[in-house]
Amino acid sequence: MNDLFNRLESRAKQINKTIVLPEGEDERIVVAAARLHASGIARPVLLGIPDKIYAIAESAAVDVSGVSIFNPSKDERLEKMAAHYCQARARVKEKVALRLVKKPLFFGCMLVEMGDADGVVGGATCTTTAVLQAAGLVIGYEHGVPSPSSLMLMQVPDFLNQGPKCFGYADPAVTVDPTAEELGAIAVQSGHNFRRFIGEKPRVAFLSFSSKGSGSHARVTKIQAALQAALALEPDFPMDGEFQADAAIVPRVAAQKIKVESKVAGQANVLVFPDLDSANIAYKLTQYMAGAEAIGPVLQGFRKPVNDLSRGCIADDIVKVAILTALQA
C-alpha cells in the first residue's frame, strides 16, 4: 500500500468503526474480516451461518474468534427490522418485508440503518445493482441527492514536478448520463467525501470542452446548469466551471484562459466529469499513463456508507474498501 493508503488505514484504526460484511460465507470475506479485526482497522461483522463461517476460517487458517457473526435467517431482530422497513415503504406488506430483511445485504443495511453498525461492504458475490437496491431501499439517499454516484481517488505520483498530489474523479462508476441536477449533487457529494478522505479543502471543477463560455453547445449549457444546481445546495467549499481540464488543474493555463475571478481555476482537486464515459476513461488514462494509484470507487449519496466490491476482488481489496467505508461513517 502507498503512503496515502497507510494514512487512511491509520485514521481508520483511530476511529475503529463497525463494518458489516454480508457475504460472510465467502472465503475472501472471512480472510478480510480476520485481518480487519486483528489489525484493529475496524470491528467487522460477518453475516451467514456460524458453523459454515468457522469451517471456512479453519480451512483458510485465519482466526475469527473475536469477530461478530450474525445469521440473518434466524436473528431475533428480524421482526423489528421488518416493521421498520414497512414504515419507510408503506406499500410493502410485513411478510414481504420479513423476506427482504432476511437477505444478507438487506440485513446488513438494516443493521446500519438501526444504528447497530456504521457501514456495509458488499458485492463480492452479487451485482452492483443488488448493492445499490439494498442501500437505496433500506438506508435511502441524503437530503437533496436524487440518485447514488461514485468517487475515485487518484494519487498522481508527481504532478507538475511538485511531488505527489491526490485528485477526486466523479462519477466513474454509477450514473451513465446524469442530468444537470444529478451532476450538481454528484459534485457536492464528491467534495464532502474528498475532504473526509484527504483532509484537504475541496476545490470542485465542472469539466467540459469549453472554459467559461468559450464554447457554445447544449452540453456546455448543461454543465453550467449543473454548477448552478450545486451552488444552490450551499456547500461550504468553492465550486466553479465550466472548465477545460487544463484550465482546472494547471495554474499557468488557468491564468491564460480564465479571465474572471475563480477560487477553483488552476487549483482544482475534485474533477466532476460530464458523464460516466468521460470519468471512466479519464481515470483509467490517468492510472496507466501517469502511473497514478486509483483508490475506489466509493459509493456516495446514501445517508450512511455502503460500498461495492468487484466480484473479482481479493481479501486485500476488501480490507481497502472497508477502510474507505469506515472513513465515510
Binding site: L100, L132, Q133, A134, G136
Partner: peptide
C-alpha cells in the same frame, strides 16, 4: 423504480411460496 424490482420479487416469493434466484429474477 429500478430499485423496486427486488420488492416485487419478494412479494412474488411470498405469494407463490417459492424461492427465486436473484440474478435470474432480475
Amino acid at each position: 423504480e429500478s430499485i423496486q424490482s427486488i420488492e416485487l420479487m419478494a412479494a412474488f416469493e411470498e405469494e407463490f411460496d417459492i424461492e427465486m434466484d436473484e440474478d435470474e429474477a432480475m
